[in-house]
Simulated assay, not measured.
Amino acid sequence: MKVTRTATLAGVSIAAMLALAACGNNAEEAAPADATAADASAMAPAPAASGTVVAVAQGNPDFSTLVSAVTAAGLGDTLNGGGPFTVFAPTNAAFEKVPAATRENLMAPAGKADLTKILTYHVVPGRVDAATLTQQIQAGGGSAQLTTVQGGVLTARAGADGSVTLTDAKGGVSRVVQADVAASNGVIHAIDTVVMP
């Protein structure tokens, strides 16, 4: 039962991540050249996704690595799952920061369990939009602890310019580059670095 629950949660988690994939606006492409302006716009809401996560996920080549990861993890059959979930979805550029050998190992059949663990670490149960996350950070005195579907914790912090970062279990930091992409089973925030449990 634990394996089924984990697989279902993983699939639903990835489904929400894939909803971001179909969004036509990639924050990395639209980001201003000035770093301060880019940080200030990091939590600007993005247009809502339409259709199921499966339908919208296949429409954006900027998330092809995420789609490949879902396939390698064998989670395709569960992508229409319920929710709601909040997904911190890495872009292709985020995956490129992971060493090629590590990516290859994770995408191999022997890496399926580790890949699932990483993918579900990007998902938080419930619908946490940018405004709610900002409130949680303020209520936490400058940070909010987010327990993921995988069971680990991400620490969210807000910068003075309104940008939001996530610190993972290994001390790595990722920045939200696009917020509030609506999906039928949750909300998605694009991030610039893969977080690791």
Rank of each mutant, 00 (worst) to 15 (best):
A179D: 04
A35E: 12
L18Y: 14
L75C: 09
M1W: 10
A183S: 02
A21N: 14
A100D: 12
K112Q: 12
T6F: 11
R103Y: 03
R157K: 15
G140D: 09
A30C: 02
A15M: 08
N92E: 11
S163D: 02
A22E: 12
N60E: 10
L146K: 11
F95D: 09
A42I: 04
G76C: 10
R157D: 03
A44Q: 11
S41H: 02
I14W: 07
M43P: 02
A48W: 03
N26P: 03
P99A: 13
G159T: 05
Q178R: 12
L154S: 03
G83C: 03
G171W: 10
A15N: 08
K112M: 07
R175F: 02
V70K: 11
A55P: 01
G152R: 08
Q178F: 03
A57W: 07
G59L: 15
A179Y: 02
H189Y: 01
V187E: 01
I118A: 07
L115Q: 13
T102C: 09
T165A: 10
K112G: 03
F85A: 02
T134V: 10
D129C: 02
A40F: 00
T132D: 06
F85C: 00
S50Q: 12
A131K: 08
A93F: 05
H189P: 14
T134L: 07
E28F: 00
E29S: 12
I191W: 13
T36G: 15
M1E: 10
N105Q: 12
D39S: 09
P84M: 00
L115N: 09
V70N: 14
G59F: 06
A110E: 15
A21H: 06
N185L: 01
E28H: 00
L133F: 01
T134D: 05
S163H: 13
S50Y: 04
G186C: 00
F63G: 14
A190N: 03
